[in-house]
Amino acid sequence: MDELSVRTPWHLWLIGTVALLFNAIGVFDFVMSMARGAQYMASAGMTPQQIAHYQAMPGWMTLIWAVGVFGAFLASILLLLRRALAFPLFAISLAAFLVSLLYTYVLTDGGAIMGRAMAITSTIIVVLLVFFTGYARAMSARGVLR
């Protein structure tokens, strides 16, 4: 099918908007964490131990975090613009988040420090990123994304 004959399904606008809003929260959190540091984290309800864990994060992890949040945000925009690049960007973002989970729960004692609420939040993020990645892949395969 040529690109003129492929109609944009209504759910692309719904899912794309939800993805954009959800991933905007991640960008906001990253920017505020970098700009305001401990003050922002404390205002978000983090304990001193949790803040110390984030502040001790190595530079490579900060880069992984940035790739994850900005990649997912850009992928959401590209999904709404019907661009096929949305799929690989969502996949990269998902991979970055999985690396951050590896760091938090395997390479450090971050799981114990961050607690159950962060584990639940992380699970929700993984589920949504897997969904957004799969959705972008399906829309790309159907020719909706070009």
Rank of each mutant, 00 (worst) to 15 (best):
A38M: 04
M41L: 15
A42M: 06
S43F: 00
S43L: 05
S43T: 11
S43M: 04
A44G: 02
A44P: 01
A44Y: 04
A44F: 04
A44L: 12
M46V: 00
M46T: 03
P48T: 13
Q49K: 02
A52E: 12
A52R: 13
A52K: 02
H53T: 00
Y54A: 12
Q55H: 14
A56H: 14
M57A: 09
P58I: 06
W60H: 14
W60I: 06
T62F: 13
T62A: 12
L63I: 10
I64W: 00
W65Q: 01
W65I: 00
W65V: 00
W65G: 01
W65Y: 11
A66G: 14
A66K: 02
A66L: 12
A66I: 03
V67E: 01
V67S: 05
G68K: 13
G68D: 14
V69F: 05
V69N: 08
V69W: 06
G71W: 10
A72L: 08
A72S: 14
F73E: 06
F73W: 15
L74M: 12
A75L: 08
S76T: 03
S76E: 07
I77E: 01
I77H: 13
L79R: 13
L80D: 02
L81D: 01
L81R: 15
R82F: 08
R83M: 07
R83N: 11
R83P: 00
L85G: 10
A86C: 01
F87M: 10
P88E: 02
F90C: 02
F90A: 09
I92N: 02
I92G: 04
S93Q: 07
S93K: 07
L94W: 12
A95C: 11
A95M: 14
A96Q: 04
A96V: 10
A96P: 13
F97R: 07
F97E: 09
L98G: 09
S100I: 11
T104C: 07
Y105D: 04
Y105E: 08
V106G: 01
V106H: 11
V106Q: 10
L107D: 04
